[in-house]
Amino acid sequence: MADPNDLLISRRHVLIAGAASTSVMAPPLEAAPTGPSTAAAVPTLAVTFTVNTQPHTLTLDTRTTLLDALREHLHLSGTKKGCDHGQCGACTVLVDGRRINSCLTLAVMHEGAHVTTIEGLGTPERLHPLQAAFVQHDGYQCGYCTPGQICSAVGMLDEVKAGIPSHVSADLTARPLLSAEELRERMSGNICRCGAYSNIVDAITEVAGSTA
C-alpha cells in the first residue's frame, strides 16, 4: 500500500491509531484506567458472519464495533470512520440488506448476518451504478464520506421501493415520490463536509430514475 503522498500516509497512520483504540492493539491501554484488569482478562467471543459473500469467523474483544471488525480485522478499509458516534454516516454499511451505522453496533451482535460494504457493491472494473453516477456527477471532493453515501443510497432506494414514507412525504399512505426533497431528507444521516450535496442528489436521482 505504498502511497506517494507523505501527508496521506501520516493521516492514514493517525486514523489507524485512532481506530485501534477500540480494537486489536487497544486492550492494555483501554483496561488500564479501570483498575487491575489486564489484556488477558479482557472478554473475547467468537462470531461468524458473511461479508460481501465471504464467510468469516473472528474472535474479538467484545467491545469491537462492526466498523472496527471490518477495517482492523478484515482489512476492508473502504468503510470509513468519521465521528464514530452515529452522527456522520461515513461508516454506513448494509446488514441483511438494511443500511445501518456500523460504528454503533457490536460485531458480536451480528452472528449469522450478511454484511455488504462498498467493496461488495462494485469493483474498479465493474462499478455499481451509484458509483458510476457519483463519478459522472462529481458527487464528492475529498471522497471520505463517499463509501457511506453510496451504501446509504443503496439502502435508501430499497426503502423507497418498499414504500417506506419519510418526514417530508405529504401523504403517509401514498407511494413515496423520488423528488430531490425526499432524497435530501432520506440522506440526512450522511454528512459531506465538502458540501457536494447538490451533486450527490443529482447522482442518486439519475440512478433512482433508471430503476424506478
Binding site: R99, N101, P165, L172, T173, G189
Partner: peptide
C-alpha cells in the same frame, strides 16, 4: 392509517440508518 401521529413522530427523529437499528 390508524395511528398516524406515531408514524409522523418516528419519521421526524434521527436518520434512516438509526431508525433501521
Amino acid at each position: 392509517r390508524d395511528h398516524a401521529v406515531l408514524s409522523r413522530a418516528l419519521l421526524a427523529g434521527a436518520s434512516g440508518q438509526l431508525r433501521n437499528k
